[in-house]
Structure formats: C-alpha cells, structure tokens
C-alpha cells in the first residue's frame, strides 16, 4: 500500500431540498492499493457519497478529487470502475451483449469482455438474457462491467446486497482477488463482518457525517479489561479511583476498563483489598460491531 491518495474529499456535502442533509461535510481519503471499507447503517449517506464521487450527483458544497480528477470528468472516469446500487443493464440483452455495450461506451476492446466474464465466472451463462439472471448473477455482471476498464480505482456499493450466504462468500473472495496489487477498492457496506474480513482501512459514516476513519486494527485495537465483580457499585468506585471516570463504563452487568491488560494483577489486588468478589477478569477485544454501534449510536437489532 502506498501513501498516494486516490480519493480525497473536503467538506463534501449534499442536501436534497432544504430539509434533507444526506451527506454532511465528509472529509475522507483513500490511499492507493488499499481496500477501504465505507461503513454505515442504511440511510447513513454511503450511496449518496459514492454517487458524488463518480459524478452522478453534484455536491451542494465541498470538493472531491477522484483518480486525480474532479468527479465525472471523462479523464477520471476512464480510470474508475464502479457499481453503484443495483447493476444497470438492458434486460433484453444477454450478459455478454450488455458488457459489449459498456465496452463500446468505455472504448474498450471486446476481448476484455471475455476476460472479465472469466474473472466473475459467468462465461457459461453469458449468453442468457440479463432479465433472467438471479440476483447473484446480476451483481457479478455488475462487478464484471466495473472491471472492464481494468481500473485503478474500483468503487463498489454494497456488492453483496441481496446475495445468499454462498453468494456473499464468493463475492468477498472476488473482491479480495481484484483488490490485490496496486488496485484500490472503495467498498461500501453495512455488513460489518464483510468489512472486517476484506478491508485494510475503514471510514464510518453516520447520519451523513464521517465519524471515524482509520485502519481496522487501529479501530479494534483500543485495549481494555473486562471485570465482573460483586458488589458492582463498589467495584466501579474502586476502578474509578484507580483509572479515572473516563476509563470505566458499565455494560451488560460488567465493567469495561480502558487500560492495558498488564494492569489486571493490580486491579485484582485492589478489588480484593476492597472486599469485592471478582468472578471474571480478562482482557477484552472489541469487535468491529461493538465499535460501529458505539460510533454510530445505533443499537444492535434496532
């Protein structure tokens, strides 16, 4: 991965009418060669942001540079492959014919059509009309179209949407494959496991605002210690005295401490001295899901 920025936005904002603020001052940067996960709940502003990056919609304010050009500029588009929302193809044409139409538009040799069909494993069904394709096949054809230009930047908007578990696994494998080397992949998703498995860095968007941007390790890597003890109020008082109120949170009947696991011995000793019974004391690693819910203020299952 290199530190050359392929996508950079400053204060990118999109309003629909006077009431809907879909994207609010987003400042994101995607580096060459990385797989960047753009995470957010449904309606957070992911698709709107991606649409602005490829020039389908114009920002109300702010700027963006994509592959060295303004969004929608022909020179930039020539270096970008994208699949935004549902794949847009002609239902009466076969998969192959649809790709040939896209290849004509992109000024690409038709030989490349067969290559991308091989990559997405659709060659044997490329003669069938697009209208008869399953959701998974449609998504794969969409990825094939995005790959036609052999782009240096691939923008995929929720590519596993509507796929069954097997289809999702295949799509993840495909994205990992195409994301190797110098190619940059910007992937939006609300599926946390998917992003955790595929991405090098993530940006988390909530209510139109980019609330966090970092590497996956960095995001998960805030170390901590989990304590279950009785009486819990007394335990909380002891730990607050030791680490300060900011470091202690109570969650699901346990205390989460923002501190290094090496402090576990001290914690255990102080709690025992204070007459607290400790039933569980261990380092804990946060899942991306926990981090996501914390950042977006969303509750699991809501």
């Amino acid at each position: 991965m290199q530190n050359i920025t392929v996508v950079e936005t400053h204060g990118l904002t999109k309003r629909f009418g006077s009431r809907v603020l879909a994207v609010d001052s987003v400042a994101m940067s995607v580096r060459r060669g990385e797989v960047y996960g753009f995470l957010g709940p449904n309606g957070a502003g992911k698709t709107t942001t991606l649409r602005m990056l490829v020039g389908l919609i114009r920002p109300t304010a702010g700027t963006a540079t994509v592959a060295g050009h303004a969004p929608g500029a022909p020179a930039g588009l020539a270096r970008i492959g994208s699949l935004i929302e549902a794949p847009g193809f002609f239902p009466y044409l076969s998969g192959r014919e649809n790709l040939r139409v896209v290849a004509d538009l992109a000024e690409i040799d038709h030989k490349r059509v067969e290559q991308v069909l091989e990559i997405v494993e659709l060659s044997s069904r490329a003669h069938r009309k697009f209208g008869t394709y399953s959701t998974g096949m449609k998504q794969r054809l969409g990825v094939a179209a995005a790959l036609l230009k052999d782009p240096e930047l691939l923008i995929l908007d929720e590519p596993t949407n509507g796929l069954d578990p097997q289809g999702m696994a295949e799509m993840r494998r495909l994205i990992k494959e195409v994301g190797q080397g110098d190619r940059t992949v910007l992937l939006s998703s609300h599926l946390l496991g998917e992003v955790e498995q595929i991405c090098d860095r993530v940006g988390v968007i909530s209510n139109g605002r980019l609330v966090k941007q970092s590497s996956v390790q960095e995001l998960l890597g805030e170390e901590g210690v989990l304590v279950r003890a009785q009486p819990i109020d007394q335990a909380e008082a002891v730990l607050t005295r030791m680490f300060g109120p900011q470091a202690v949170t109570r969650q699901d009947g346990a205390l989460h401490l923002k501190t290094k696991p090496e402090h576990a011995v001290d914690i255990n000793r102080e709690l025992i001295v204070a007459g607290v019974t400790v039933s569980e004391l261990r380092p804990f690693e946060r899942s991306l899901e926990e981090v996501f819910f914390q950042l977006t203020g969303e509750r699991q299952g809501s």
Binding site: G55, L56, P74, L77, A78, G88, F89, A145
Partner: peptide
C-alpha cells in the same frame, strides 16, 4: 428505470457527449 443511464454516465464520455 433500468439504471442504464447511470451505467453510461460512469464510463468514459461526459454527459453532453
């Protein structure tokens, strides 16, 4: 309705072209 305009506009040519 088929989303094919989006596909066309994200290829190489500009909107007016």
């Amino acid at each position: 309705s088929w989303g094919t305009l989006k596909t066309a506009l994200t290829q190489r040519a500009g909107r007016l072209t």
